[in-house]
Simulated assay, not measured.
Amino acid sequence: MADREQCAELAHQLRGAFAVTREIARRMPPQTPLTAVAVLSALDRHGELRSSDLTELLAVDLSVTSRHVAYGVERGWIERAPDPYDGRSRLLRLTAAGGDVLRASSTRAAEVLADHLADWPDDDVAQLSALLARLRGSFGDHTPRTPRISRVHAG
């Protein structure tokens, strides 16, 4: 079991890890912010979603989700379709163009990491990835996440 001193050091390292995310974001095309990539990724992983379900997956406020979805819709990355089982709701889905943007963004992020980890042994990269997944799991993030998706029609 980790003691408080180890946990304090880990907290320090995690704060510093934001530099990694900032560098990845900096090297993305300006029209593809990481927030947009997160939305596209969720739709790719989970398929059609209502905005409320996407909000739960992203763990953000509905207004934030709406803003990010509007950004993706304007660019043709996301489409809204009527929910055939609830006329008040819209289903969000990834378009082919959105899939292309997601793949290009994933490739770019991998390139950025590869540039910075070029001198790391493959086993170290794999171990770090596994440990980060374990850490996320300890906080309740068991990706792929399964929200309480209100799929009345999913059966």
Rank of each mutant, 00 (worst) to 15 (best):
D3V: 02
R4Q: 08
E9L: 10
L10K: 11
Q13D: 02
G16Q: 02
G16W: 01
A17Y: 03
T21M: 09
E23G: 04
I24A: 09
A25Y: 03
R26A: 06
P30I: 07
P30N: 13
T32A: 15
P33Y: 10
P33E: 05
A36N: 09
A36K: 05
S41G: 10
S41W: 08
A42G: 05
L43C: 05
R50Y: 11
R50S: 12
S51F: 12
D53H: 12
T55F: 15
T55H: 13
T55L: 12
T55V: 13
L58C: 07
S63A: 14
V69C: 15
V69T: 15
G76A: 13
W77G: 04
R80W: 11
A81V: 06
D83C: 11
R88G: 09
L91N: 12
A97E: 02
A97N: 07
A97R: 00
A97C: 10
V101N: 02
L102R: 03
R103F: 00
A104K: 00
L113W: 01
L113S: 06
A114N: 00
L117R: 02
D119L: 04
P121D: 04
D124F: 04
Q127M: 10
A133H: 06
A133C: 07
R136L: 10
R136P: 04
G137I: 01
S138D: 15
F139C: 10
F139L: 14
D141M: 12
H142F: 07
R145A: 08
S150P: 02
H153C: 09
G155R: 08
